[in-house]
Computed example of a mutant assay.
Amino acid sequence: MKQALYFGVLSVLLAGCSQFKANKPQTSQPINLEAHVQTLAEDVQADVPTPAQKFATSNSRNMLLGKWYGIRKTANGGQKEWLTERSADGTYRVDFRFIAKNGDVRSQSEVGFWGVSGGIYFRIFRGWVTVTGMKPADATNADHYDAYAIESLSDSYFTYKHAVRGQRYTVKKMPADFRLPVTVKSDNSEPLTFSY
């Protein structure tokens, strides 16, 4: 079952890579994406994630630091990519890239706090990064607080499931220099750290 899931993720990643070539934006390109996707099948065979219950909270937290890339098709025939960067100080930044079915591309960046407790990964969304600074989110909105069951975690892959909506995500660890391309009206060079 897990192997079928990984091959499903592989096919989505490969489809996403072909779109990068076909719809090459005028902005910076992701670094080394094709090389990482091409080795995904070998990685899955060699690095089956360990069930999350076998990790202490501190181990899981340390493994989740850095950049993690995900991609999935949307219900309307488009594509959504995201790159989450988690820092040791408990902050995160996630850059999204949305590609509509007609080829239109838009980007969005969000920041917040993250953590791990036992087999639960959680995020607290605090705002959006814009070219003029940070736009705070409404802290009273319950939808800005998310909890996920950690299903599997390794040095290369992370699978987690939303505790309420039941959506499952699998992401791949990326090198520190990996970036998503962004559209002209967005900026992903803001510092990751922030304060209130």
Rank of each mutant, 00 (worst) to 15 (best):
A176F: 04
F125M: 08
T74F: 00
W68H: 03
P25E: 09
A22M: 13
E85D: 02
D89V: 15
F113D: 06
F194R: 08
F113S: 10
N32I: 01
V44R: 03
T159N: 03
Q3S: 05
V48W: 01
A142L: 11
A100C: 01
A52D: 02
Y92R: 03
Q53E: 14
I120A: 09
S87H: 12
V94Q: 04
S186A: 15
G118S: 09
F55L: 05
F158M: 06
M134H: 05
S195A: 15
Y69C: 01
I71L: 13
E85S: 10
I99A: 00
I150C: 05
G16S: 15
S87G: 07
G70L: 02
A88Q: 09
S11P: 02
P49M: 00
Q3K: 09
G127H: 11
W114K: 01
L153D: 04
R72K: 09
D187N: 14
T50W: 05
K21S: 12
M134T: 10
Q79S: 04
A56M: 10
F158S: 03
L153H: 04
S156H: 11
K185P: 04
Y145C: 07
C17I: 02
V44M: 11
L64M: 07
L40S: 09
K173W: 06
T193Q: 15
D95N: 15
F20D: 10
K2N: 05
I120C: 06
S60L: 07
A176V: 07
N62D: 06
